[in-house]
Design a protein around this nucleic acid. Structure first.
Length: 218
DNA sequence: ATAAGGATGATCT
DNA sequence: GATCATCCTTATA
């Protein structure tokens, strides 16, 4: 088992635990409010890994707790947290969040945002606010709160702040909502088969597109 | 408030 | 050559 045992289950079970989690990258922290689960190779037609491993999706087949970053529509980067077991090819797409640290920096990175709620509303916006790009693909997340408090020990150099940290909540947020995934065409977008979008109610940082009536889950 | 079209390039068939 | 796990601007109600 790895350091991210909590992420090693099925994407649909891990996704609720990521709601409310805080991801910190390069001076900006986001509290995640919207995510989408993507299943294993062969299991989920909407997943990049559906047809097997390629150069692009290789990170998804690695251990849980890494960032899988991909480029899309000729201009956008999007980030996933890899979950499941090695070789499964499963993860959770980060679709939206609220900036809780580094607000000034996030505003600089997202100059077109009119309101703070728009800074990380949408997967590509979220990546942009965090300064995430292709260079971050494969980055191993570290647990948050691990500070080098070795006060004044010269033999122990101050640990460089991790490139990316993740702080998980103790338990899944009560009362999260689920619905069909956004932007997934074909069978993978079938809301009955894959109601794998998860979000927190009443959050302005959740994308507005909600095609079907949400269903409450505990 | 919601809809439509353009931008721009990797990836895979 | 088609398809994108999209965003932004502009147009119409």
């Amino acid at each position: 088992m790895g350091q991210w045992e909590a992420l090693e289950g099925r994407a649909v079970d891990v996704a609720p635990l990521l709601l409310g989690a805080v991801l910190r990258v390069r001076g900006v922290g986001v509290r995640l409010t919207e995510v989408e689960a993507y299943g294993r190779q062969g299991e989920d037609p909407g997943a990049h890994t559906y047809r097997g491993r390629t150069a692009r999706n290789a990170t998804m087949f690695g251990p849980a707790g890494r960032l899988y970053v991909y480029f899309t529509y000729g201009m956008h980067w999007c980030a996933n947290v890899v979950c499941g077991q090695e070789g499964e090819g499963t993860g959770v797409l980060l679709r939206g969040g609220e900036i809780v640290e580094g607000l000034e920096l996030a505003r600089l990175r997202r100059p077109t945002a009119k309101r703070d709620a728009e800074l990380a509303r949408g997967p590509a916006r979220l990546a942009m606010a965090l300064g995430i790009s292709g260079a971050d693909d494969g980055t191993a997340l570290e647990p948050a709160g691990r500070r080098s408090e070795a006060a004044g020990d010269p033999s122990e150099p101050a640990a460089p702040s991790a490139a990316a940290t993740l702080e998980l909540p103790r338990a899944p947020h009560a009362g999260f909502l689920t619905g069909p995934r956004t932007g997934v065409s074909g069978p993978g977008g079938d809301p009955a088969a894959f109601p794998w979008r998860f979000w927190l109610p009443g959050e302005p940082s959740v994308s507005p597109y909600r095609p079907h009536a949400p269903r409450r889950r505990a």
